[in-house]
Design a protein around this nucleic acid. Sequence first.
DNA 1: TTTAGGCACAGGGAAGTCATGGT
DNA 2: ACCATGACTTCCCTGTGCCT
Length: 694
Amino acid sequence: MGKSFFYCEQDYTDNKFRLRKFGRNGSWLEEIPFRPYCYIYGVGNSEFKDAINHKSVKKIEFDNPSNIGLFKSDNLTLESDIPYERRAMLDMDWKIDDVPKVYVDIETNDSHGAPDPNRDEILSVGMIFDDGREEWLHGDEKKMLQEFINLTANVGMMITYNGGTDVWSTRSFDIPYIARRYGKQFEFDNMLRHCAFMDIYQIYKYETSRVGKALAGGMSLDNVAVHELGHGKIRRDKKIYAMPKNELRDYNMNDVRILKEIDEKFQFTDVKIGLAQLTNLNLCAWRRNKKVDELKPLIMVDQLVLKEGKNLGLVWHDRQFSDEESITGAMVLEPIVGVHQGVQNFDVRQMYPNIMINEKISPDKDRIVVPNILMKLKAIREELKEKYKKTKSKEDYINQYGYKVLANVFYGAIGNPACRIYDRSLAQAVTSKGQEILGRVREMCELAGFSVVYGDTDSIFAKIEKSKSESLLGLINNMIKPYEMEAGEYYTRILFLGDMEGEKIIGAKKRYAGITDEGEMKTVGVQSIRRDYCVIAREMQLLALNKVLNGKSEVDLQTCMNNLRKVLPSKIYDSYLVITKGVKNLGEYKLKTKTGKESKGQPHIRALRMAVEKGFQNMFDISFVYTKKDVEPILVDGIFPDDIDYEKYYESQVVAVVEPIIKSIQLQNGTYVIKEKSRKRKTINQSLLEHLSS
DNA sequence: TTTAGGCACAGGGAAGTCATGGT
DNA sequence: ACCATGACTTCCCTGTGCCT
């Protein structure tokens, strides 16, 4: 081949099927090296056999890829559901290469408030290409957009911040806005059909949520940049439309630069390219006249499975969709409530992928396809990790990370009915083995005389002196071969939360806080790292955890709480009271009660409804505050209602997150007293008294 | 239009419980 | 003894975001 391409699709001109490849200098046609095909059961022209039952299969060829669909409806077919260009990438082992990138940000006329593509024109477009070339377009909108199309004619990846991943996206800004101002969305999209739209906002949000760090202050480009790069957007004292040309250019281009810097820091788009190369996939594809993301986990798994099958002479059935009961998942041990001193955390290295290798978890008859793939991924990753240690090169890092991502996806895929290798009992086998391993590790720790204070899926928290942890690790690893544990954090002090349930103390799973031997506080699962609690409650909880982990008294804490309660009504902390939650479109909520009546809905849904009534649509998140009347959405930064219900905040946010901490300590010490629940009715006099005294 | 399951917790709503006051 | 009322509790459900 020689020539590098970044996008490949089937092309039908002059009544001939070909493949069109797109490269840095334009596109070119390639003759199809084989005809479209699928398989049916039967004997004849093929050495291949059904992967699952080893029945022999027959290859059926077609002149036109769309004929497979017609044939399929009348026959039991195998591998008939693989798009033609994907089939070509697989069979020819083609990979995309050298993807030209452009970072884009637009500024629009904001003189009417929130920009509306039907009314407000685009004032400028800022672009930075991967070779460092900067372009800034400004002036007549029609000419500007035409120039934009010209400049991006051979671009494979357009990268924005909240610009969306397709021209139809309703919750995103730049890309659909340009498309609508351009005229016809479809035409615009078609013009850039080879170009994948990457939204750093969405990727960042997804990736950071996976490692559990909700960003205080929201996910705006400015806030993310300040947090990740140390510098944000240019401060402005006027609206966009009122800016002189030079100022607008500086503002616009600075946005593009920080966008590029964020991407380069995390290598988000390079990782995507790495994954596409590993799986012989395009970044995007056209299906039913719409551009879609190709790098979805199931598609990546599909490609690898089909490829490995082909190597082994195996053919797979078509994907099937079924609705089955879910399986039993991981084991979570109940934590021992309270503060513990000296706790070592151990994790099983890559537990699920290794189980799938060692236990030969694979749907094919010989149980080798999935283990083979995972072993290859593992071996290459080890090699790349070693190489990365020496070279510190970006490519090596990205590739080893890509192999890790892919390995971890396989368990989820085998448990998803939409996946070609779906097998409920195999998924169950993986989790059962996981439970067994964790159970044995727990027994081993206890047998060696160390109490296990917590464990989740593949991790164990054992009470042990740091100096002894290595020898315990040795014992464990000897026992669980070929699996392998590694030491994680060592906590000098760690707190597990819990509550009474009847007569018993029950530990709360998946939430704890501790101080590592390096003196850092780590919080997991607790409200202070959840973005749907207000900042003041989150901060207060952090303070409480800090005090408790450092052995401070509870009295001290109560003083802080009282002070906070007094200062809240002064309004200076209003901005810390905003609660933000992710939302769907209003219509997607069930707003009917069991008896069929109209339901009031949950607070965030009521806030969403109010926002929609004010004309805000397609929001990812809703921000709101509790008021004395109900709730109120926060739609403009920095403007808050007068009647915020401060007492409610104190009770249902601040107390709600601090009290469980105090309670857990008391439960451990045995000083907790169950409050007598008086069945007496609260008289008017009592509540009056309370009101007067406060 | 789809990688998995396990978990805590807020708040709404319906049904149940209890004290009160009237007949 | 019986009933209506209102305040409160209990349980189930929806929804979100977290953990591995």
